[in-house]
Design a binder for these strands. Structure first.
Lengths: 305, 305
DNA sequence: AATCATTATGAATTCTATTCATTAAAGTAT
DNA sequence: ATACTTTAATGAATAGAATTCATAATGATT
């Protein structure tokens, strides 16, 4: 009999195109998934993934099962929501604060989806950006904040969301495009275009430039497209998440390079008061983030706290 | 995470109203189901079945999950059928022969359902009744026969379907209604109303009357309703499956008694040529019988060969 | 050709579901 | 009421299957 976990594995394989990456996502080893897949294929006597391609692609049978998996996941979630209904545990408010501008890109669809499923939860976005967003939880001005540093504080519960790579973006004819990857010194004589937030909240400063004592000129813009326009017209460099960039890179609008030879990676957490962490709509919101992000954003990775 | 097997358990509990009976149906012990149920309830922090009633009834949360279970079962079966499609393994013919008249009552709905799902399988009913129905398989005049004796012959594969109780049916004012159960001798001066088939194919004769040397007068009728009419108008007794009787008994049209103090039980098997037993539409047909019978017929029981 | 990355495989292990052996509880009958 | 029967619950022991580990095979990349 096929089980939920098998379907989850197939979904991961489809979304990551690799057993190794899938394994991380479902918190098992690559070997486990290989065995699982083999068992499924033996059971159905049908190939489910084509191993001769990179990334792995599902056969039509595999695709059919993934379709089934999505359908079942939806149905299960709906049913599970409904059986909690009498408990009136799904009434409440969820004020969300974010630290990084780019998060808007995926947060909006998540919120829209969530609103449909949890009509009795008042969803709000806390406006403005805050130097110590966790403070918003203590002072009861927000119920959930998306942050990129796990400072593991008293009474706060952190849930890992995903990890993504920040790429240095530059005009196509920029001299630095000859490099394979950039290092701190490469930024000395450049202008950095960032969102209008304190430097401590910008990973590139916090993890690369400030430790090396490099402090390039800075210019700010509110919107991602605005930043990209400035970059394209040679006003400077920017550091942006790879998943927000793929379209622009594919069309050759700008170029991107790794920052450091391992790349500059950023972890995203959802932080809530520990007293809220068991509320079912809070957990639903967090898993909703993961689900839609892993499904729609390319090349993001799961991680453990 | 909830798994398919948990949903199957809930379906069984709903359909049987008891953990003990459910356990037989899913081929586990009562203890296993009790643990399973507890785990599910702990997981959801919601009661799923009301233990204070007999038969067990599901709470609204339990019912919701059973609804989910049916939906998922459908979806899984559809998907599994579709992924086999390229294999052209689902083309073929299935000529069905039956030994007992009453089987018609449940076979028709099963066939209708099956026809919808396996359009490329030619379904036929082999007409007439045959003293050695397995011969029909050897001589290629039928592909699947429903029989009540497992003679375990060479090259034939038997699949247990279900077990049901045969009750003696009599007019409401019949003197034998005073008995708790009937024994062979009670039939001596009675007229038996049966389907028009050889006595060797009638369980009451084969298992009770012939062994005791009792041979009452016999009268035949083609249809179950006709038999019941004769019984109601005091023309004799009949032995019929309990599940075909519940309606008539509830309305007080006739009375029924056990045959022997343990009751007279009959086992039903599906027999196919071993060479056909792995064909997916054959397996689908057999599991379709079980599914609809367990869902719609009351008080039938699973059994193992 | 050599190296790097990914998947496959068989044996060992771990972990969880199930069974076993009882107890507790509920329902029937005396 | 009381015994008797049936059914469910429980905790410990067990069995079995899924996962990991260690390594080989395969395929991609330089």
């Amino acid at each position: 009999m096929i089980e939920m976990r098998h379907l989850a594995t197939l979904v991961a394989i489809k979304e990551t195109g690799s057993l190794t990456r899938s394994a991380k996502r479902v918190h098992l080893t690559q070997s486990a998934l290989s065995h699982q897949l083999k068992r499924m294929e033996d059971y159905y006597r049908v190939m489910l993934v084509d191993r001769h391609t990179h990334p792995l692609v599902l056969t039509s049978a595999g695709e059919r099962l993934v379709k089934l998996a999505y359908l079942i996941r939806e149905a299960v979630e709906t049913a599970e929501r409904e059986i909690q209904q009498d408990n009136s545990k799904n009434k409440g408010k969820l004020r969300i604060a974010i630290e990084c501008h780019t998060c808007f890109d995926w947060l909006m669809p998540v919120m829209d989806d969530f609103r449909g499923h949890w009509p009795d939860v008042e969803l709000d976005l806390v406006s403005g950006f805050h130097s110590h967003p966790v403070e918003l939880l203590y002072s009861d001005r927000a119920d959930l904040v998306i942050i990129s540093e796990n400072t593991s504080q008293e009474g706060i519960s952190f849930s890992p969301l995903f990890r993504f790579e920040l790429l240095a973006v530059m005009a196509n004819d920029h001299p630095l495009t000859t490099r394979k990857h950039l290092v701190a010194d490469d930024f000395v004589h450049e202008t950095l275009i960032t969102y209008p937030v304190p430097v401590e909240q910008i990973d590139l400063y916090r993890k690369v430039l400030l430790p090396s004592g490099v402090n390039p000129e800075r210019r700010t813009a509110e919107l991602t497209i605005a930043i990209l326009q400035l970059v394209a017209s040679r006003r400077g460099l920017a550091a942006l998440p790879n998943w927000g960039l793929t379209n622009y890179l594919d069309y050759g609008y700008v170029s991107a390079r790794k920052i450091g030879h391992l790349g500059l990676w950023s972890d995203l957490y959802a932080a809530v008061l520990s007293s809220d962490s068991q509320k079912n709509y809070v957990q639903a919101f967090i898993s909703s983030i993961q689900q839609t992000c892993f499904k729609t954003l390319e090349d993001i990775e799961p991680f453990d706290s």
